[in-house]
Design a protein around this nucleic acid. Sequence first.
DNA 1: GATCCGTGGCC
DNA 2: TGGCCAAGGAT
Length: 381
Amino acid sequence: MTPPMPVRNPAPQDADVAGRLLAWYDAHHRDLPWRVPPHELARGMRPDPYRVWLSEVMLQQTTVEAVKSYFRSFVRKWPTVTALASASSDDIMKAWAGLGYYSRARNLKACADQVAVKGGTFPDTEESLRALPGIGAYTAAAIAAIAFDRPAAVVDGNVERVVTRLFSIATPLPQAKMEVRAIVEGLVPDKRPGDFAQATMDLGATICTPRRPRCMLCPLRENCSAQANGDPEFYPVRLAKPEKPLRRGAAFVAVRSDGAVLLRKRPEKGLLGGMSEVPTTGWTARVDGATGVSAAPFAADWRRAGTIGQVFTHFSLELEVFRTETNAPAPAGHFWSGAGGILGEALPTIMKKAIEAAIPGATNGKLGDTATANHLITTIP
DNA sequence: GATCCGTGGCC
DNA sequence: TGGCCAAGGAT
């Protein structure tokens, strides 16, 4: 595919892009649990930096819908950054389980600790925020703009899409990032920079969507180069992604008569770092080390319970699940989950799937039926 | 700069 | 149905 012929239209930087976006935001902003809407800001209300920070970290590469319930749960459990700092890493990992990218939870705790030591007050500049664990260029700019009213250039995936369309930027991402940033820096208004950032992201989420953008409803359509060219969906151009290799392994679900499940903790760093898991074979390669019951944590009457799968960021995984019942003490490095089941444990989704395959109903609906149906592989050779 | 890091919804 | 993508960060 080739980019459409550029069409001359009023240059976006000469239009009052920020003014139009803010007016649109006043009328069409989304109501979100962590957001202070424009009419309350106008009455002098200020966002709580803790809630802004928490929501921004949760929203990294994660959809708004997935974040909502986790955000509510976190602020109910830990209303302030000091309260969060007082929590154990273990409790934070448990509360984060299912949201993904678990290094975020570890960095969340590290960041809360640092802020708590300084009296529980977040720094209020982009640079000082950027120095905290888990806060990169995007998150620092977002907190600075939204919580502290600083004219920071907030560039996320939404903004990249809006800007590459507005200016017909055919340079592939992520190569075009610097160009996009420079443009945004020129667009940020002195007043209401936080609302401007949120307005741009809301526009990207509801109007300037990846597929089938609703250009007829867009406040910027008159100045959008891609719209004038007739193919906004062409942008942004992205580099092709490498295909995901398939890895295989086996998972062992040992069930005690009181319903407890044998677990162990994964290393702090790396894939699913710091989370719990049922014992498994290795699965760092396509066929990794010991296979089948020879890799079980102890000899027992292991019965096949099915095969589960999950697609991770850079590989796909299939695990053959084995189950046994035993009341033996936990082997070294292992522990029995709380009697009655595994609810509340820091289990990533793939591990909940494994347990669900071995003990139907064990995850008590915390693993969606749809997800279970989509990933349970019933045809076993 | 390239690679590693989850999950769920969408068409 | 599977590829795409979402308010990215760390190394």
